[in-house]
């Protein structure tokens, strides 16, 4: 399937055009994306640190993950939502940006991992390797994401 026409169409949508032509919108969406990222990172980190035996050691892993679940889902919603908006405003730039494709690949793997292997580890209350892989994957998503601006 040829993807370029799809990206061209996405960039031409009303939402994409409005953001692209506004001076303030894109920077404000970026701020939301960063703040969502910080919260998402915090919720992921607390549970992964706990799986490693660090951080909030006084709490059972599953209970901790359960308490943080709404915040994690909310943060993921904000980050993905603002990310989609930024993408729409520069879909063609993303199409030609290698970091964009790395990021999307890593994001798919990280999200899949979070809802399968990591969820199981949280249920079992242990999983040091899982925690390290989880942190590594999210770090990769963030790293590649920042580099979309550079390449």
């Amino acid at each position: 399937m040829e993807l370029l026409p799809v990206f061209q169409w996405l960039e031409a949508t009303a939402v994409g055009t409005t953001i692209r032509e506004s001076l303030w919108l894109f920077p404000m969406i970026q701020c939301g994306h960063l703040l969502g990222l910080a919260l998402l990172g915090g919720t992921v980190l607390v549970v992964d640190l706990r799986l490693l035996g660090w951080g909030l050691r006084g709490e059972p892993v599953a209970e901790l993950a359960g308490k943080l679940q709404p915040w994690m889902v909310g943060a993921l919603g904000v980050t993905v939502g603002t990310g989609v908006l930024m993408f729409l405003s520069e879909a063609l730039k993303c199409y030609y940006s290698p970091p964009f494709w790395y990021k999307m690949g890593m994001l798919a793997v990280a999200t899949g991992f979070a809802f399968t292997v990591r969820r199981r580890a949280v249920g079992l209350g242990r999983g040091r390797v899982t925690a390290v892989v989880s942190m590594g994957l999210w770090l990769g998503v963030g790293f590649a994401g920042r580099w979309i601006a550079f390449y």
Binding site: L34, L37, A38, L40, G41, L45
Partner: peptide, 8 residues
């Protein structure tokens, strides 16, 4: 990225 570690 240290934002996650610090601000998170």
């Amino acid at each position: 990225l240290t934002l996650c570690l610090f601000l998170g």
